[in-house]
């Protein structure tokens, strides 16, 4: 068939598929993890400040 690639030339396509999968999954995993950690730290800090009776000025909107 026209354009069909066989033999060792196929490995480049396999590597591209695995590499893209690892890259995209890694990016979504990392951004989800870091955003969760940041949000939970902010929430915990605000709760701790509230308990001490402080008002975190930087968090005012």
């Amino acid at each position: 068939m026209t354009g069909v690639i066989s033999g060792s030339g196929q490995w480049a396509y396999v590597a591209a598929a695995y590499g893209l999968t690892a890259l995209l999954t890694g990016i979504v995993l990392w951004t989800s993890w870091s955003a969760m950690k940041k949000a939970e730290r902010r929430s915990d800090a605000l709760r701790a400040n509230n308990r001490r009776g402080e008002t975190p000025r930087g968090d005012r909107k």
Binding site: A39, L46, R47, N50, K61
Partner: peptide, 13 residues
């Protein structure tokens, strides 16, 4: 967990 934490911050503020 991120959405829940953000909600809690917004509620406290």
């Amino acid at each position: 967990r991120r959405i829940i934490a953000d909600n809690r911050v917004a509620a406290r503020l």
